[in-house]
Nucleic acid binder design. Structure first.
Lengths: 144, 144
DNA sequence: ATCAAATTTGTAATTATTACAAAATGTTTG
DNA sequence: CAAACATTTTGTAATAATTACAAATTTGAT
């Protein structure tokens, strides 16, 4: 937890109890959770945590570039403590979001740029959609 | 309008009056409009058009691959009749969405793939965010 | 023209997110 | 340490996009 505190301070964020809990959660759950998922999971240890605080906190993290805010899912924003350039894949069946790193997609680094033509870039998101191998398998069995 | 009808038929969509109006709108307005924008613009000529029909129609178009449904904007879905591989840029200030074609971003074609690793891809979206040149100019003037 | 199927419509429900003001907590200064 | 001030959190209520649903309308085939 001391590490989480230093992590926040390094990004210029005052480490309140709530902020540390959220940051720690994101650092230890690399599942691209939604606001509701974070809320449900933290609620056990922090019954007083409010949704508004969560929204405020996640927005702050995003503005200070501590986390990413993914728009791959039309229904909910999703959050990611990994700020390295990487793409995402969402399964249309189970909804799970997978990471795609540069070793699987060599062109990836080329699209993560500061500038394209005369446009200055502050955020890049590369989103893939499809059916993940697990759900493909299940569908094959069902359709027999 | 006859062309729009054939366009829909080509994609296996029955050309009702409403569907033709929406398709024609998208073919002649390459501005990545939201549902509300389409609704407002069509409402003059079609006062009975309902939002539900719009949502149904746009979902159908998306499923039949006649149009793209963009998730670049967190607030609203946006629609695009250009189904060629291309990226998008949204200005954080004015909200306008620009196209980025392969000539401006040579790596673009490389990320539009049918497969990445063992993942089968059905949809790719490459979204950039930043401040567009027009808004940058305005901000410079304001901050003097 | 009739009938069945497909489509459209309006209303109501759902759900994610934001606004806001009061309460709580943390920080600074005398 | 205590008073004064700033920041953060909280709960509730408002907003806004999207979906559910059943009745009404339109379409296409016979």
């Amino acid at each position: 937890m001391q590490k989480t505190k230093e992590y926040l301070l390094k990004y210029g964020i005052r480490p309140s109890v709530q902020r540390m809990a959220v940051m720690h959660y994101l650092l230890t759950h690399r599942t691209h959770p939604t606001v509701d998922e974070i809320y449900s999971d933290l609620h056990g240890d922090m019954p007083t945590l409010s949704k508004t605080t969560l929204y405020n906190t996640l927005k702050l993290f995003y503005e200070k570039n501590v986390t990413l805010m993914l728009t791959i899912d039309e229904q909910n924003a999703r959050f990611d403590a990994c700020v390295e350039p990487h793409a995402h894949f969402q399964c249309e069946v189970c909804g799970k979001v997978y990471d795609i790193m540069a070793d699987e997609l060599p062109e990836l680094n080329g699209v993560y740029r500061k500038q394209v033509g005369d446009l200055m870039i502050s955020d890049v998101q590369l989103n893939y959609r499809g059916v993940c191998p697990i759900c493909q398998k299940k569908e094959t069995i069902t359709n027999q």
